[in-house]
């Protein structure tokens, strides 16, 4: 069984936000109006965190792209009363939209605050309605959603590989954010296989994980910037 994971190089990341935009389009993430946005109801499966380090005037700003970290011991799935979110065999933390009752307990329990909730029925401007990705199911109002590592792409890659009668190769399955990044800062692949690029990168000395001390074992690694 593969264990899918991601490595994001903060040295090459410029904070342009291309990944977040690509994610929104790929996954039919709803676009909320400015008022709602001000209230804090923006929906972003891939968010851009801004961390300030040091004291003025010596501040360093750091941009950190943040998908769901797909924890190997996820606090969010443990609390779900109906198993609408669970860790699947390949290490992806999935959401089952038709199962979710919308209690938002998983949102409260996620230490990384990555989940979004459909406060209203998701809506898009008319011009976009026709451009929705048919591979990703639409969400009703009142359910929680978050990054799925573009799990529909895994499905497609598997079908493709089966059609060509071969195993899945490194690079066959890449989420939209990794594909869109202009500086190739996001690497994606199988952690189980030591020969993949991600496995190599996550073993380098620059690798770290967010809030590692919580023991959630996230499968998204970051690489420190080099001075």
């Amino acid at each position: 069984m593969p264990r899918w994971g991601m490595v994001i190089d903060l040295n090459t990341c410029t904070g342009c936000g291309e990944c977040a935009a690509a994610c929104k389009i790929e996954n039919n993430v709803a676009i909320v109006g400015p008022e709602e946005s001000d209230m804090g109801r923006t929906m972003l499966w891939m968010d851009m965190l801004t961390e300030y380090e040091g004291e003025y005037p010596d501040v360093k700003i750091r941009y950190i792209p943040r998908p769901c970290l797909h924890c190997d011991d996820p606090p969010c799935t443990r609390v779900c009363p109906v198993r609408a979110t669970y860790l699947n065999d390949e290490g992806i933390v999935a959401q089952i939209f038709p199962q979710c009752i919308g209690c938002r307990y998983c949102m409260a329990a996620c230490p990384y605050t990555v989940k979004s909730f459909n406060w209203y029925r998701p809506e898009w401007p008319d011009t976009m309605e026709s451009a929705l990705n048919p591979d990703v199911s639409a969400r009703p109002a009142g359910v929680v959603e978050k990054c799925t590592f573009c799990i529909h792409r895994l499905q497609k890659a598997k079908e493709q590989a089966a059609a060509e009668n071969r195993d899945l190769r490194d690079g066959d399955y890449i989420p939209a954010c990794a594909e869109a990044c202009p500086t190739k800062a996001i690497t994606f692949g199988d952690f189980e296989d030591p020969k993949t690029e991600v496995s190599r990168l996550r073993r380098t000395a620059r690798a770290f994980r967010l809030l590692e001390e919580l023991g959630t074992e996230p499968k998204v690694y970051y690489l420190y910037e080099v001075e």
Partner: peptide, 22 residues
């Protein structure tokens, strides 16, 4: 508080006792 109160019966059919809500 539920976003989908109509689905409350999911608690009956597939509730999980490991969740503090249960």
């Amino acid at each position: 508080d539920l976003g989908q109160p109509g689905r409350i019966w999911h608690l009956a059919t597939s509730g999980r006792l490991q969740s503090p809500l249960l």
